[in-house]
Amino acid sequence: MLEYVFYILSAISIACALLMVFAKNPIHSVLFLIGTFFSIAGHFVILNAHFLAIVQIIVYTGAIMVLFLYVIMLLNLNKESESTKPNIVKVAAVVSAGLLFLVMLASFKESIAIPLPEGTDGIGSVKNLGKVLFSEYLLPFEASSVLFLSAMAGSVLLAKKK
């Protein structure tokens, strides 16, 4: 049962991701990306990480993609205003994407699945996640929040400059 759900979700996420790349209209692109994020949240639910799933929806689909959509609507981008790149740039893009694919393939080929240790049923629950974040990974957690603060301060500085 869960296996079928996984295959359906994977099909949706890959289809949405491809459509996102190939869509001519930037708004359609953004909407397909939202679909991709939703199906990834579904994957988190299958993996019993409900908190991550809902955070994925709140942060990515609910906030970041809304801002994306907002900016694209304001800029009013459409097919006519899309600039065409010179051929050499296209070739370079294809080559670098191919190289990235090769590296990913090489790293995944040697990887082995690590089995879950026993007794980790509620590993994705809020309580366990909170305990781990505030004990074992306290320093990285705080460091990343400082990173967010500096990003915020930077944007305020840029906006106030003129």
Binding site: L31, I34, H50, F51, I54, V55, I57, I58, T61, G62, A63, V66, L69, Y70, M73, S125, V126
Partner: peptide
């Protein structure tokens, strides 16, 4: 009775914007 009920509601509210935006 999901254990993250209140977050679920916040998530649905944040997705609700899309109907109006689209």
């Amino acid at each position: 009775d999901i254990n993250i009920g209140i977050l679920y509601i916040l998530g649905i509210t944040s997705v609700g914007i899309y109907g109006i935006m689209i």
